[in-house]
């Protein structure tokens, strides 16, 4: 069984909420799901908001997939924001020397939607 990650449309933007655990087997599925959702959404130009408040652990592999997915979404013309990272996750990534440079971040979904603004 492949757990699916819900992708919603909120105020013209795509909102992906990652819950629980992004296992090694699910993480590539996540990237594919997000990219195909953007593809299906062609013609609109809302942003992409990835909510990771449900992730208790983010190792460098998952962090890299998140950063790559954000970069790909940007290449596809989507303003992309990752929001809701937990304090302990941020501290761990930084201690490991992984700063997620180039990924735009926000406190929570509200803050993230504020950053994305109104779709052009």
């Amino acid at each position: 069984m492949t757990p699916t990650i819900p992708i919603l449309r909120v105020r013209g933007h795509l909102l992906v909420s990652v819950q629980g655990e992004l296992g090694d087997d699910v993480v590539e599925q996540f990237q594919n799901d997000v990219l195909s959702a953007i593809e299906r959404d062609r013609g609109r130009d809302g942003g992409l908001l990835v909510d990771i408040s449900g992730l208790e652990v983010v190792d460098t592999y998952v962090a890299r997939v998140l950063a790559d997915t954000a970069a790909m979404a940007r290449l596809m013309g989507r303003h992309t924001v990752v929001c809701g990272m937990r304090p302990e996750v941020a501290a761990t990534l930084v201690q490991m020397g992984y700063m997620l440079d180039g990924v735009e971040t926000a406190l929570d979904v509200d803050d993230g939607l504020d950053r994305l603004g109104l779709p052009r």
Binding site: P87, V89, A90, V94, M99, L100, T105, L107, D111, G112
Partner: peptide, 12 residues
Amino acid sequence: LKTTAALRLLGA
């Protein structure tokens, strides 16, 4: 600077 980077990850 690491503190700054970690706070940025939170969106602050």
